[in-house]
C-alpha cells in the first residue's frame, strides 16, 4: 500500500528531506546575465582548462558536486547516493564525474527535466529511509550540446527566433534526512506528453503541454492552488513556451500568470543577450534553482515554490526520422519550513 502517494501522480513526503547546500558553476555568458550574482563559480574560459567541451562539462559537474559537499563540511565518502544526468550521449558528463567522485551512482536521462527528476528520486530515497545524504546534480554545455544536436560552432547558420540557447552550467544539491530546510515536501512525476510539435527549433512549444499537465496534476493531487505558492517556475520553456504554458494551464482552470515564470527566461537578458526565445538545457533549471531560488528560499524571501524542470525527449535520430517531440516535466514543491 503506497501510503505516501496522493492522487494519481504525486507523493507527499512524510519525512521531507532538507536541502543542506547547493553549488553552481556556469559559463561566462550565464555569469553576465541578470542572475550572475547568485552563481558560485563563473568560468572565464568555457573549456575550463580541458581539451574538449565534453571534458569541460564533466569537470563542471564534478566540481559542483564537490563544492556542495565541501560547503556542508562533508566528504564524498559520507554521501550515500548520487543521482545525475545530462544531455550528452550515454550521459558521459555525469558518469565520468561519478568515476572520479566514487559515490554510489544512479545515472538518469530526462533531458532538461533532469534537475527535478534527480531531486524527486533523491527525496524519495531519503524519505524511504534508504539514505542520509544524497546528491542531485545535472549539467549542460552550449558547445557540447551544439555539436551533438545541431551544427559545429563555426558553422555559419542562422538561428530562428523560436530557438533557445543551451546553458553552460552545472548545479548540484545536497539533500539530507536532517537539517533546517528548505525542505522538499511534494513530488509530482510527469507523464510523457506529445502534442505533435516537430520543429526541433521550437522546443518551448514541444515541452509546454508536459509542463501544463504536470502543474495541473499537481494542483489536483494536492488540492493546492496558485495562491499557495510564491513562485511557480518551469525549467526551460523560454519566452515562446512560457506563453503557451500559461494559456494551457488557464484552459485547465487555473490562472498562474501572476506568479509564474521560466528559468530559461530569467537567466538571460532576452533583449540584450543574443539568445532568441531564451535558455534551455539541463543546466538551466539546475543553476537557476541551485543558485537564485535556493538562496531566496534560504533568506526567507520565498516561503514555498514549485519547480518544474521540463525536458524534450528527442534525439537527432528521431528528428531525422520525422518523429514529433515528446515532452516531460517533473515538479517538486520546496518549502522554507515545515
Amino acid at each position: 500500500m503506497a501510503v505516501k502517494k496522493i492522487g494519481t501522480q504525486t507523493i507527499k513526503l512524510k519525512n521531507p528531506p532538507s536541502i543542506l547546500e547547493t553549488a553552481t558553476i556556469t559559463g561566462s555568458k550565464e555569469g553576465e546575465g541578470p542572475l550572475g550574482q547568485y552563481f558560485d563559480v563563473i568560468l572565464s574560459d568555457d573549456l575550463y582548462g580541458e581539451e574538449s567541451w565534453e571534458k569541460a562539462e564533466s569537470k563542471m559537474t564534478r566540481e559542483a558536486v564537490k563544492l556542495a559537499i565541501n560547503k556542508a563540511n562533508l566528504h564524498p565518502d559520507n554521501i550515500d547516493y548520487m543521482f545525475s544526468g545530462d544531455l550528452l550521449n550515454q550521459i558521459i558528463s555525469s558518469s565520468f564525474a561519478a568515476r572520479e567522485l566514487q559515490i554510489p551512482f544512479f545515472g538518469l536521462y530526462g533531458a532538461c527535466s533532469t534537475m527535478t527528476e534527480s531531486l524527486s528520486l533523491s527525496s524519495m530515497i531519503i524519505d524511504g529511509g534508504y539514505a542520509d545524504y544524497v546528491i542531485a546534480a545535472t549539467s549542460s554545455h552550449f558547445a557540447s550540446a551544439e555539436r551533438q544536436y545541431r551544427f559545429p560552432l563555426e558553422y555559419g547558420g542562422q538561428r530562428p527566433p523560436t530557438s533557445q540557447w543551451t546553458v553552460t552550467g552545472a548545479g548540484a544539491a545536497l539533500l539530507s534526512s536532517s537539517g533546517n530546510g528548505p525542505y522538499i515536501t511534494y513530488v509530482t512525476t510527469g507523464r510523457v506528453m506529445d502534442f505533435g510539435v516537430k520543429d526541433a527549433n521550437n522546443m518551448g512549444a514541444a515541452m509546454a503541454p508536459a509542463a501544463a499537465d504536470t502543474i495541473l496534476r499537481h494542483f489536483k493531487d494536492t488540492g493546492f492552488n496558485p495562491n499557495d505558492y510564491d513562485i511557480i517556475i518551469t525549467g526551460d520553456l523560454g519566452k515562446v513556451g512560457k506563453e503557451l504554458a500559461v494559456e494551457l494551464v488557464k484552459k485547465g482552470g487555473y490562472d498562474i500568470s501572476n506568479i509564474y515564470t521560466d528559468c530559461g527566461v530569467e537567466i538571460f537578458d532576452l533583449s540584450e543577450q543574443d539568445v532568441h526565445s531564451g535558455a534551455s538545457g539541463c543546466g538551466c533549471s539546475a543553476v537557476v534553482f541551485c543558485g537564485y531560488l535556493y538562496k531566496q528560499l534560504k533568506a526567507g524571501r520565498f516561503k514555498r515554490i514549485l519547480l518544474i524542470s521540463t525536458g524534450a525527449l528527442l534525439s537527432p535520430t528521431s528528428s531525422q526520422q520525422g518523429e514529433s517531440i515528446p515532452g516531460i516535466a517533473h515538479a517538486v514543491a520546496i518549502e522554507r519550513s515545515v
Binding site: 523560436t162 502534442f195 512549444a205 499537465d213 519566452k239 503557451l244 494551457l248 484552459k251
Partner: peptide
C-alpha cells in the same frame, strides 16, 4: 477530455504564438 481538446487546438496556439523572422 481536456487533453484531447487541447492537443487539437495546440497547433493553432503554436502558430499564433510563433514569433516571425
Amino acid at each position: 477530455k481536456l487533453e484531447k481538446q487541447l492537443s487539437e487546438e495546440f497547433k493553432n496556439m503554436v502558430d499564433k504564438n510563433n514569433p516571425q523572422s
